[in-house]
């Protein structure tokens, strides 16, 4: 059974004025353990699809099932709860909380989940080590490089033990060394721990490493290639 299943998902922005059809009926299934890149030119609907899968946005029509649950009918607060439990986000602009240290940024979601202190500390340590910045645990985001911030963001995304991780253009702001480093880490997490990653990207370096590449054109799946 796929962990993500979208059925004829459409999204129309400004339906009343100048309708923009961002998604025009997307059918997509993603299995657990995939390392999938969603690619396509600007305006093809990558980010919209990712937002809808991530429960940040709702489709105009169609349904999205995550782990067998139809999330397209969720209320705002059900959605927040769902995101907290099931999805790890990695954003293009890192979006770490500026006033918190690396450790606290990672710990935050677990605080929301009311995990015990011992469990939180152990998990934070483990995650920061696995992304290779355990020595920077007490640094604030503005004291870290872009690559380091994005690695903290990956650790944060994993902290809640999510069903899958959504990464929206995770390498867009990074130099090639940091990109390679980040991709290594994510590939290793995928292989060793079976974590499902879904990226939106038009970075060839990411596409090269992905094991499945879904190409969107004009809001529809154009090609779907397994490597």
């Amino acid at each position: 059974m796929p962990i993500i299943k979208t059925t004829q998902v459409t999204k129309v922005y400004n339906p009343d004025t100048i309708p923009v059809h961002a998604l025009a009926g997307v059918d997509l299934e993603i299995e657990a353990g995939e390392f999938t890149a969603i690619v396509g030119p600007s305006g093809s609907g990558k980010t919209t699809l990712l937002n809808i899968i991530g429960g940040l946005d709702q489709p105009t029509s169609g349904s999205i099932e995550v782990g067998g649950q139809d999330i397209s009918k969720f209320s705002d607060s059900e959605m927040i709860d769902f995101r907290q439990k099931n999805i790890g986000f990695v954003f293009q602009a890192y979006n770490l909380i500026p006033v918190l240290t690396a450790e606290e940024n990672v710990e935050f979601v677990m605080l929301l989940q009311k995990r015990s202190k011992a469990e939180r500390q152990a998990r934070v340590k483990e995650l920061l080590e696995s992304v290779g910045i355990a020595d920077k645990w007490d640094k604030r985001p503005n004291q870290l490089s872009g690559g380091q911030q994005q690695r903290v963001a990956v650790a944060r995304a994993l902290a809640s033990k999510p069903t899958f991780v959504l990464a929206d253009e995770p390498t867009a702001n990074l130099d090639s060394k940091s990109t390679a480093n980040l991709l290594d880490i994510m590939a290793r997490l995928n292989q060793e721990e079976g974590i499902t990653f879904v990226f939106s990207t038009h970075d060839q370096r990411v596409i090269d490493r992905a094991r499945r590449v879904v190409t969107l054109v004009d809001g529809q799946v154009d090609t779907d290639v397994y490597k």
């Binding site: 991530g54 907290q84 909380i97 929301l112």
Partner: peptide
Amino acid sequence: YKELGVLMAIGMGKGK
């Protein structure tokens, strides 16, 4: 705004 958005995206409830 952005920071609050992130907090809500990663699952901080409205009440909180």
